[in-house]
Amino acid sequence: MIRFENLHKAFGDKQVLAGLTLEVQDGETMVVIGYSGTGKSVALKHIVGLLDPDAGDVLVDGRAVSTLDRDALNALRREIGYVFQFAALFDSLTVAENVALGLRRRGLDDDEIAERVTEALALVDLTGAGERYAAELSGGMRKRVGIARAIALRPRYILYDEPTTGLDPVTSAVIDRLMVRTREHLGVTGVVVTHDMRSAYTVGDRIAMLHEGRIRQVGTVAEVQETDDPVVRQFIEGRPT
């Protein structure tokens, strides 16, 4: 279970998160929506301890992330797959090496690594691209390698930061299906940050809207679709003011 507890984070004068509280149950996929620049990525980074909160904390399995020492934090990170918004692939490595890097850290043997790499690349429809260098890929391919890198770990939690932004509609649908399947097969708990409402409705069990540093509304897909809250309505319908 992931629990954001009254999380506060500012950069300089800019208060980004101001009392974010949200609970993600085991086995569910929580979709987080919100305007660009509201701090969705910042919130995700707190889950893996890449950022330190000013106040409040994130609890993963009941343990406050910001209080963990280095070893405990690394142990926690081994349970979490993180798909970065801009993929964050290692440019100097091939696609296959990118996917393998995290597996090697987990001490798997070479055969198992090769097997998992092949499998993960097949899942994101990149079979045969393993030997290409990350720097040579298109944006959409990079994104899919980023997803492969996370799911190859078979983690208990996966955090997706805008997994379908910038992909064509068909590839987006493929990725949506992949996220749903990953949850069904591996039983992972997921947090999906997205602007793509179609994707949100497909993969989400619940949807939470982050607005002005806190959660504006959280509810099942049906509840959010029926919402009376004008801010949420406007966002999900994509109406300009």
């Binding site: 690394n74 990170r77 979490i80 993180y82 918004q85």
Partner: peptide, 18 residues
């Protein structure tokens, strides 16, 4: 520097590398 600003350093950390 490039690795830092493109979040590759963050990615390394999430893969439990130091």
């Amino acid at each position: 520097g490039t690795m830092k600003v493109t979040e590759q350093v963050d990615a390394l950390e999430t893969l439990a590398y130091d």
